[in-house]
Design a protein around this nucleic acid. Structure first.
Length: 136
DNA sequence: GCCAACGTTGGC
DNA sequence: GCCAACGTTGGC
């Protein structure tokens, strides 16, 4: 079972909107590395939901409900989406500054590859994030 | 709004 | 296939 992290700009698609919708397809990925991660997602896997630009923090947990398929917003075959549903909002959102301050998270893709919009999260990292979020 | 980091494009 | 130029992302 793998873990993931997706980024969204709250202006464009916030966690609150996501909760209202109950489900969304994750579109707009136009980067091969991110695309490959989308393709690697399996149904039932858990995904951290991160707000970039504003907030700059992990705000919630989502789950993959449908594995990748052709991005309906483009006819270019290279691009895919997955369906996600909200699982829960974190008690305490985890800001990037806290992630950077946590030695156990020093190697997170979020820190090292800050521009990648869909990235894998290790099980250890997942646990630490939830711990910082006050979930347990 | 600035700028660093990094991915992509295109000329050779 | 290399690499400079350019565009975009995202933290601050």
């Amino acid at each position: 079972m793998a873990y993931w992290l997706v980024k969204s700009e709250p202006f464009k698609y916030s966690w609150d909107q996501f909760e209202k919708d109950k489900k969304t397809f994750w579109d707009g990925v136009r980067n091969y590395a991110a695309r490959n991660n989308l393709k690697a997602m399996k149904k039932g896997e858990q995904v951290l939901y991160y707000h970039s630009n504003e907030g700059v923090e992990v705000v919630g947990i989502a789950e993959v409900v449908k594995e990748f398929y052709q991005d309906p917003t483009t006819t270019e075959e290279a691009w895919v989406v997955v369906d996600l549903k909200p699982v829960k909002k974190l008690k305490n959102p985890v800001p990037l500054s806290a992630i950077k301050a946590e030695p156990r998270l020093a190697n997170m893709a979020l820190v090292k590859l800050s521009r990648l919009s869909v990235q894998p999260v290790t099980e250890q990292e997942w646990k630490v994030i939830l711990e910082l979020a006050g979930e347990k």
